[in-house]
Design a binder for these strands. Structure first.
Lengths: 151, 151
DNA sequence: CTCTTTAATGAGAATCATACACAATCAATT
DNA sequence: AATTGATTGTGTATGATTCTCATTAAAGAG
């Protein structure tokens, strides 16, 4: 299940002179145990951990999420709720994209192999080191098209 | 140049019981006259307008940007600077995507016809009304790969 | 063209997500 | 076991965006 181990995380951190802390280990585990298709905001993660008796400060949560996103371990999702969401950044067979209703925020995941290939090729051509690549579709869902509510 | 006219905007607004105001008209024009590849934040737009003697309040700017994004007139870009950027949402030949360096925020635009097709098809399959579709690639640019700076 | 209705604006206050400062802690290395 | 500096937690600060509400002015009706 856990494709990315604590050991690998430690190695990658130490290589840059950084450290594996219990907080970082715990946060990684939360994401690894998260059911498919779930994603957490900083606040979500904080509450989830508090509920389990794990008291990690909000500051550390924000710092860790950012760190792991920049390491390519997590993907940072912009899902129309006004705050970021995070999920494990998984390779090929699990890699997916999002179709978002801008009115009700209903979100559908979908897969498409071509997109990842395009992203990889584009990054490579420009000499960029790829971290994540996501197609975000903003749209209006069937229900919201019917409702005549404003906006 | 202006594929989307003031008249069309008025028609679309009135159809929903809304109004075309001088402020909305002005803001649309700014985006239509914006050089290719430029995009503005709310603050940018506010300053740009102030510089031209057009005094539109920040509140109205935020409201208008959101409105036009939800109408599909503008695209809302999340370009790693911590605030949103907007640009005209243009069809096929001008439609493009972004490759972003998560360290220095350097951004490259690129085109790819297949992605728009994929987005259109995906939205259609789910019965969603497509507004915008953008591939965002997070990566590390060549310069930042060389620099040993943190993060 | 005037009247009526109500959407839109402007100004400022309020909110929300996220970043920062700094003293105390502790992971990694010696 | 000692050393060093990265990391944490607490509280505070920031910055983007939204909200409130009185005032203004589009759009449609007559």
């Amino acid at each position: 299940m856990a494709s990315y181990t604590t050991v690998a995380l430690k190695a990658e951190l130490n290589e840059r002179g950084w450290r594996l802390t219990p907080q970082r280990e715990t946060i990684l585990q939360v994401f690894q145990n998260l059911p498919k298709g779930n994603h957490l905001s900083a606040e979500d993660l904080y509450n989830h951990l508090s509920g389990e008796g794990e008291n990690i400060s909000l500051s550390t949560i924000y710092r860790t999420l950012k760190l792991m996103a920049r390491m390519g371990i997590l993907r940072e999702l912009e899902l129309a709720e006004g705050h970021k969401h995070y999920e494990l950044n998984q390779p090929h067979p699990h890699h997916h994209h999002h179709l978002i209703c801008v009115r009700c925020n209903k979100t559908i995941e979908f897969k498409n192999d071509t997109i990842l290939k395009t992203g990889t090729k584009t990054a490579q051509k420009e000499g960029y080191h790829l971290l994540d690549c996501q197609l975000t579709i903003h749209a209006i869902c069937p229900a919201c098209q019917r409702s005549l509510l404003p906006l």
